[in-house]
Design a protein around this nucleic acid. Structure first.
Length: 484
RNA sequence: GGCGCAUUAGUCAAGCGGUUAAGACGCUGCCUUCUCAUGGCAGAGUGAGGGGUUCAACUCCCCUAUGCGCUACCA
């Protein structure tokens, strides 16, 4: 059975990459009726942040990519938190030690730094020099007895070509001479990623690993570990995903970009289905050339046997503008009632939360993100603020006088307050006064809202009602050009 | 520095030895229009550079350059 996993670290913030990876895990696992697992890689105690797990789960939940098994869900292959399985890792470390595939290293940080610096000066790879590999069993025993701080390193064989058969990149050959004797057990007793991930993937019966391409160069070490532990038969297949890159300046999509966290998208009012669509679209092209498609269609990019994922292999620059366009497409595609509901969920603390239904049709084609609703419509819920500069942008000379006429017309419309009549009346008025109808409508718009841009005038006025609309304009007509 | 992966417009990209080198976002202009949007139409903009192979190369090969990744007791 297909089993995939996403394995984030609890650093207190959910990178978009988690959703991106989970998308692959989720779609692939479900296409082949498998299971998608979430486990937490909390072996780096220095970066651990309390509550970070919830952030991750919430993010996946938001994206509709919840795992079938793991943290917050349970399952028969737990625990799903690495910090709770230290004995298991220790057991296999001992096994590797015994088989001679690993060794104790007592070198201090200072010595290692010095050694690397020297090697770099001599243009050599800054690999560990294997000083401690030469230690005799007696010496090791003695050091251990003296409680000298140590790590355990895996022993990399000399001059061996290791082939990574990747579902995206194809076959990649790496010579073991390029590899360092990787630390697999840290001095604090925690394993490093390399060992922990291999052990977990084995016990959790993971069949396919989707992870960022930054892991490709260290995959040979993992393959070696699978062999050393005698598990090569159950080694998962690999698919190294193209990285999400900053749109400017290059490099991995980073914290400092602001829009690297899942939270950003949620707060800005991006729809998870649009984000997921964009993420798939940025690395994969729909065979029919479609840009808008759901996770279900993304299944087409995956094949089980032979394992193949037909996405591009190089990094993709993240284009926020295109995501915004896509989000707008999703918004326009929704029914009014659905959008109303989404907005209500989004505008939790907004005063207008309960009264947005009639406004939705007016703004649907005018917003790209749910958050755009707020600036576009706040004049409907709050008294407008007027600035003389805004009025001055109009090509109308005697504003006060014209406004007076506008009020007159409005008062006269009391009995027949409808869109058609509204428009007709003011077109006629602008003709009578010799000003362009565009300017007439802009003047009314500003007097009514204080803004140069609003949803359609009549409909907006209708939202707050005839009397209130008239009041607003009357007030401006009398006080102009002084607003207190 | 070493190793790996890559290189079609600002971005995502299709095709894959013979094409007017698709399409999308963005940009510009026009139409629709009470503003803004939406919608429609049009336009500008592309195969890194150098060598080969071939009747023919964006497409195959090599080199260089460039980009990204890795080179931690971080994942």
């Amino acid at each position: 059975m297909v089993r995939t996993r996403v394995a984030p670290s609890p650093t207190g913030y959910a990178h978009l990459g988690i959703v991106y990876q989970a998308l692959f895990d989720f779609v692939f696992a479900h296409k082949y009726k498998g299971k998608f697992v979430l486990r937490i890689e909390d072996t780096d105690r220095s970066r651990f942040v309390e509550g970070a797990e919830e952030v991750i789960v919430e993010s996946l939940k938001w994206a509709n990519l919840l795992p079938d098994e793991g943290i917050s869900k349970g399952g028969e292959y737990g625990p799903y938190r690495q910090s709770e399985k230290l004995e298991l890792y220790q057991k296999h470390i001992n096994e590797l030690l015994k088989k001679g595939f690993a060794y104790h290293c007592f070198c201090t940080k200072e010595r290692l730094d010095e050694m690397r610096k020297l090697k770099e000066q001599n243009h050599q790879a800054p690999k560990y020099d294997r000083t401690c590999l030469k230690l005799t069993d007696e010496e090791v025993k003695q050091n251990l007895a003296e409680n000298i701080s140590f790590v355990v390193r895996m022993k990399i064989p000399d001059n061996r070509i290791i082939v990574v058969d990747d579902a995206i990149a194809g076959k990649v050959e790496i010579n073991s001479n390029e590899l360092d004797d990787q630390v697999i057990l840290k001095s604090d007793g925690y394993p490093t990623y390399h060992l922990a991930a291999v052990v977990d993937d084995y016990y959790m019966k993971i069949t396919h690993i989707f992870r960022g391409t930054e892991w490709l160069p260290s995959t040979p070490k993992h393959i070696l570990l699978w062999e050393y532990l005698g598990w090569q038969e159950s080694m998962p297949k690999f698919a190294h995903l193209p990285l999400l890159l900053n749109s400017e300046g290059g490099g991995k999509l980073s914290k400092r970009q602001g829009h690297a966290s899942v939270d950003y998208y949620r707060k800005e009012g991006f729809l998870p289905e649009a984000v997921v669509n964009y993420l798939a679209n940025v690395v994969w092209n729909h065979p029919e050339g479609k840009e808008i498609f759901d996770a279900r269609e993304f299944e087409k990019a995956f094949e089980l046997e032979p394992f193949k994922v037909s996405v591009k292999s190089t990094g993709a620059k993240f284009d926020l503008a295109k995501l915004e366009w896509m989000n707008g497409e999703y918004i326009r595609k929704m029914s009014d009632s659905e959008l109303t509901q989404r907005l209500q969920e989004f505008l939790i603390d907004h005063p207008a939360k309960g009264k947005i239904a009639p406004i939705v049709p007016l703004i649907k084609e005018r917003i790209k993100k749910l958050s755009d609703f707020i600036p576009l419509t706040h004049f409907l819920f709050d008294d407008p603020e007027y600035e003389i500069e805004v009025f001055k942008k109009l090509k109308v000379e005697n504003i006060k006088e014209v406004l007076g006429k506008v009020v007159e017309v409005l008062v006269g419309m009391k009995e027949s307050w409808n869109a058609e009549k509204f428009e007709q009346s003011f077109r006629k008025l602008s003709e009578d006064l010799g000003i362009r109808s565009q300017d007439m409508f802009q003047l009314i718009r500003i007097a009514f809202s204080g803004q140069l841009v609003t949803p359609p005038l009549f409909d907006s006025m209708n939202i707050i009602g005839y009397n209130s609309s008239l009041e607003r304009i009357k007030k401006v007509a009398t006080s102009y050009p002084n607003f207190s």
